[in-house]
Design a protein around this nucleic acid. Sequence first.
DNA 1: AAAGATTCCAACCGCAAGATT
DNA 2: GAATCTTGCGGTTGGAATCTT
Length: 325
Amino acid sequence: MGRTPCCDKSGLKKGPWTPEEDQKLIDYIQKHGHGSWRTLPKNAGLARCGKSCRLRWTNYLRPDIKRGRFSFEEEETIIQLHSILGNKWSAIAARLPGRTDNEIKNYWNSHIKKRLIRMGIDPVTHTSLLNASLCNPTLLNLCGLLGLHPLIKTELMRISTNILASQSQSPSLVNQSIQGQQYLPHDAQAQQHLELFQNQQLQNQTLLNAPFPDGGQFQEAADTNLWHDIVISDTHLMNVTGVDNNNLEASIPGLVSDSFCISGNNSQNYNLASILSTPASSSDNMISSPPSTYMNSNTEDERDSSCSDIYDFQIPDLLDVSDYM
DNA sequence: AAAGATTCCAACCGCAAGATT
DNA sequence: GAATCTTGCGGTTGGAATCTT
């Protein structure tokens, strides 16, 4: 298919836009609409290519653009949508009014991605980076090195054993499920997950407002079944975002029943699918006490520290485990 | 205070796909 | 049906701002 340059490059300005150029573009579009982007620069008296004008308008000058920091809810939405849609920034932006795909992409790359990595979550698959270690006998010693709670260690071992057993019994099922859920989702699946996600959003609102179960300290929580919920969510071997429990169980009965079995009574108060899909946010919701502390946090640091508390507990700073990731 | 390192984000680039000729 | 045009998308980059030493 033939393709010519979007414009005659000679004599056209590149680089940052001046306020005068912005004003010309705004004035023209307000009067005439953008029409054909190719002819717009000439008509508007701009020495830019149409592509540059379109980008400037859609990413910066459009009146309905919301500027400023991303709210917690927006960030939560981005993470969840990304787990469903992948790097479909325009699709994600379509569900975040006032935000552009470029802005979301930048925010993902500069903030969310790094935070997820720091918290031990693979930003591509939305699964724990420890997954790989569970399949590696050498790395299984990591639990010991980290001084994890003995019960947690036991459960981690049990889950990994279940996974391996499931894989040997029905590898195709497991592979199919992992390929389908963890990596680039099929369009149909993505759509299905999206619909489920939208329903889930409503439930999440309830979850966000739910108080910490017993109002106690984190260490207390670590000794309850709630801790198991958190650990399982972080060490879950598949991305189950937006997948209802029945579907998941149909794929890997052993794993799911085990995981859910050890969730304990407290889990009944939560939307487990949501928790599993976004460990970061789930830990926020449950560990932050009171929840409003986090919700009102505006600075990156506050948000970051709040998000990473639980992971700091699991992986002491003095131990550099980045080599294992 | 200065130099170097890092972060952040606006803008650019190339590609793909749909529309038009 | 082929060639060309137009638009939109995702990945990448350059440089200003900020942080660290």
